[in-house]
Amino acid sequence: MIKHYEISGTDFANGGEASSDFKTVLKKLGVPMDVIRKVSIAMYEAEINTIIHGHGGTCDAEIMPDRVVITFKDSGPGIKDIDLAMQEGYSTATDQIRELGFGAGMGLPNIKKYTDDMQIETSEGKGTTVILTIKL
């Protein structure tokens, strides 16, 4: 089963809609709460990244018998230095974003922490694809 979501690049108020909806889907399927929490946290971070840094994009969340695979795709500026972006506390977010409580530099580290696998494909000026896998 695949759920497709369009993620607006400006709509902060609704940031997390995809993650919230997918959480409801997993709940209905009877997925254990600790797994749902991992998926939710990783997915929310990726969703917020897609809004803040990717200026919007798409999300496809697929549920397989043994795992969940979630793909976020944007056409934003790409990630210049992935090693830096992976460091806790490093962020390129603007002051305006920081005032909203984001930009702590914990996005990618949190995704890595709560997933079993994270793949990033990025190209400067072309966009970023992040694929999260969480075992069920």
Binding site: A13, G16, K23
Partner: peptide, 10 residues
């Protein structure tokens, strides 16, 4: 956004 964070972090 506190609502989404509270919900997702449970």
């Amino acid at each position: 956004n506190i609502a989404a964070v509270a919900s997702l972090a449970d």
